[in-house]
């Protein structure tokens, strides 16, 4: 099952970002001997979010005069360890890691620590170990604000008595918990009831479709569905269509896809909470540089999540394009 998910993710990434095919290790050899080298250990560069982030890292590294070596593990633990050992053995000055999971991050941090190499964690996080800084999105804030977008919309439509269903990422994850808590807070403040929550397991289209249809059928007063991930939004769109509830059930997401720039204005999507991976990459390099240059660095840096709706999409578009989609940097 895991393998199927991985293959599917790879396929989707290739479809949207043909120009940024992932390489296992892209090394700027020209700068290697003169400048310090930084390694970016990423779980899977084929995933657009990490690919956009790697661009931010690269851009900021270039600006600060570092060489950057990117090690994609292809979402494999063995590969991730091998990348780690390889990076350490190549004596990089610092490591930015977006680990396959927080547990694996602990091992990476352990080896890095033994080798005396500073590490900045970009998203995901670690279970244990020492690092310079952990840079992540403010999931709670983002979920709360997109919740506010929804509640205001429902109030505008006079649907205050309607309820809202949630299709969530696993709640064992810290970001999952934070997203749910922020969104529920917004609903509570508006006095709108929740209609139940379904947790994603395989992150497939069918799963999203099935959960959406189930929420619609089980909840007659259902007036909105919020997806905590963006990549399977089509499943929810199709379910609403299938249930004949188009125009009667609103749809929102956390994270964004390029197509959202069209869907939000069309009100197919009411709104989306958008992380800023490009900005996160830039911040990671900056933190590492600050550490290497002896500056104080915040141990944890939270970047805001953009709450995008039809009302503000136009004004946020430049930021979205740069920090969220990394389009402008291309």
């Amino acid at each position: 099952m895991k393998k199927t998910v991985h293959i599917l993710l790879i396929f989707i990434s290739l479809f949207f970002f043909r120009g940024s095919l992932a390489v296992e290790a892209e090394v700027d050899v020209s700068m290697q001997q003169e400048t310090k080298t930084l390694a970016y250990l990423v779980s899977d560069i084929r995933i657009p979010f990490w690919e956009i982030m790697s661009r931010g890292i690269r851009k900021q590294a270039e600006e600060l005069g570092y060489k950057i070596e990117i090690y994609s593990a292809q979402n494999l633990a063995k590969q991730e360890l091998q990348n780690t050992i390889k990076a350490i053995q190549s004596r990089v000055s610092g490591i930015i890691v977006s680990p396959t999971n927080s547990s694996a991050c602990s091992t990476i941090l352990e080896f890095a620590q033994k080798a005396g190499i500073p590490v900045v964690i970009a998203d995901i996080g670690t279970e244990s170990g020492d690092y310079v800084s952990y840079i992540s999105s403010d999931n709670y804030q983002g979920a709360y604000e997109i919740g506010k977008v929804l509640t205001e919309k429902m109030q505008a439509l006079g649907w205050e008595k309607g309820s809202v269903g949630i299709i969530a990422i696993p709640q064992s994850r810290e970001n999952g918990k934070a997203r749910t808590a922020g969104f529920i807070k917004a609903l509570d403040e508006a006095g709108i009831k929740g209609a139940g929550i379904r947790q994603q397991k395989d992150f497939s289209y069918g799963e999203t479709y099935h959960y959406s249809l189930e929420l619609i059928r089980n909840t007659p007063q259902l007036r909105a569905i919020w997806l905590q991930g963006s990549d399977r939004y089509q499943g929810a769109v199709d379910a609403i269509h299938q249930a004949g509830k188009e125009g009667e059930i609103l749809l929102l997401t956390f994270d964004a896809e390029p197509v959202f720039l069209d869907l939000i204005p069309k009100n197919i999507l009411v709104g989306a909470a958008m992380q800023q991976p490009f900005l996160m990459g830039e911040k990671s390099v900056q933190a590492l540089d600050d550490h290497l240059t002896g500056k104080a660095v915040k141990h944890e840096i939270k970047l805001s999540v953009l709450s995008v709706s039809a009302e503000n999409i136009d004004s946020l578009l430049p930021i979205i394009r740069r920090n969220v989609l990394g389009v402008s940097s291309r």
Partner: peptide
């Protein structure tokens, strides 16, 4: 086998 060093350590 899954190279989960941290996991078996925990």
């Amino acid at each position: 086998s899954s190279y989960s060093v941290n996991e078996y350590s925990k």
